[in-house]
Design a protein around this nucleic acid. Structure first.
Lengths: 248, 248
DNA sequence: TACGCTCGGTGAACGGCGTTCACAAGAGGC
DNA sequence: GCCTCTTGTGAACGCCGTTCACCGAGCGTA
């Protein structure tokens, strides 16, 4: 076929490069001037192009935004992973705390990106490997695998069994993809539930803060966040429970 | 001074009526066709008007949307309050459970409204009495006052003191406004922390579900929510602690 | 009664948005 | 040298929020 990349042998070079460039410039615009500045004309101008040219790479603005979301998400996951790796694997509790605190810090420093990724239903049709799932899997999965996080769920969640099984399968396949195969039984549903619950609490606190829904408190919510973190750390402090009550 | 309402004696009649009508129709549009259908022209057409007429009532679209948010919020609070009042005041644990479950049900049935109110920073400048604060105060405050919720915080949050003090003052003044004066010492910081924490967890779970960020689980997240609720109920089940460790 | 003021509403217009479309270069393959 | 496919363009469409000049109706007052 034509210039480069495209069909058969060479798996896409210059084309995917400009596509990446588009996403990068779009993200820069998002960071610098907020979501409303994320217009096709502005993005195109950033690259010396005109708006219709972008349609050669993305079928719609929503798809482009969705791709940017994926980039942001990957970046966040990478960010958290390096934060975790900076803490010795022998201290999984400290690792979890680093991840959780890092999540808040990142969110407060990247409000526009956070709002775009975590504050709206995705319209671009990225589908399964979506945002929270990605971050959760990459970070939590790595944590579970490397640290073998000792965790006792405060409540044995018998009813939530299928959800946890599903999440375990996702984590296992994700870890396998990343070249870190883990024995199935090493990831206990209790631990999965505990971490998922921690992430939900964390997300709630951070989202409320970023969306300024805690402004009515009229005080710095950081101490509140610290208290939550301390509580989580306390939960993660327990020794692993031997029994596998109800979930295999 | 023209037709009706306006300045001195009669405190606004027909004018505020049409303003209310605008908000109501706007909300209907939001519910039926989503946020992107919330355009000035569409809202005006709904009332047999043209777009510029709306500027006689709201200085901008953002202000109108903000007003709609306030309406939604008030409606949610009222909704939850009736749910609570349906449960006997002698069982505050069941009341809390009803409120929490009702919040999720409402959010899933009013996704567009939820996303608008809880998924974006408010741009209309409503300011202090904003969304989460309103709902939290109206429902939690009423619960604390009527049920005298017995609660033991799992961690005594010494560091979060000022936040809780601030929230307590807000609750007290809110209750006083509502004609339910409560003795200050009846609302213990422990209980406030516990309830705030429950709301944060709840918000996290519901927001993630509404924003479809749990879709990667590929299973119904309701059991997970139930597990969280059971855990919360367990926390609320403890008897009140006598000590007032570190917080007034 | 007639003036004048203000309020609530209009139509036209502006710039900007996402999106579509016909069309023009340019790069290989034959 | 063509033929084709890719990548980009400019013009246009319809819709958006917003502004502006204008206009009739209703009222207080002279």
């Amino acid at each position: 076929m034509t210039a480069n990349t495209s069909s058969s042998d060479r798996p896409g070079r210059e084309r995917s490069d400009t596509e990446r460039l588009i996403r990068a410039r779009a993200r820069g615009l998002l960071v610098e001037h907020g979501e409303k500045a994320l217009t096709l004309r502005a993005i195109a101008a950033e690259l010396g192009l005109t708006a219709p040219a972008l349609y050669r790479y993305f079928p719609s603005r929503a798809a482009l935004v969705s791709a940017v979301c994926a980039d942001v998400c990957a970046d966040l996951a990478h960010n958290l992973r390096t934060l975790i790796d900076r803490v010795p694997a022998s201290d999984p509790k400290a690792r979890a705390a680093a991840a959780f605190r890092g999540f808040r810090t990142w969110a407060l420093r990247h409000r526009a990106e956070f709002a775009l990724v975590f504050g709206t239903p995705d319209e671009g049709g990225a589908g399964l490997r979506d945002q929270f799932g990605l971050v959760l899997m990459e970070v939590t999965g790595g944590m579970l695998a490397s640290g073998r996080l000792a965790a006792a769920a405060p409540v044995a969640p018998a009813a939530a069994g299928p959800v946890l099984e599903s999440l375990r399968d996702l984590l296992l396949s994700g870890l396998a993809e990343a070249g870190v195969p883990v024995e199935r039984h090493l990831i206990r549903p209790d631990a999965i539930y505990l971490l998922l619950r921690c992430w939900i609490l964390l997300y709630g606190a951070v989202a409320l803060e970023v969306f300024e829904k805690l402004a009515f408190l009229a005080t710095d919510p950081e101490p509140l966040f610290d208290a939550l973190l301390a509580e989580i750390a306390d939960l993660l402090d327990h020794d692993p429970v031997a029994g596998t009550d109800g979930l295999g």
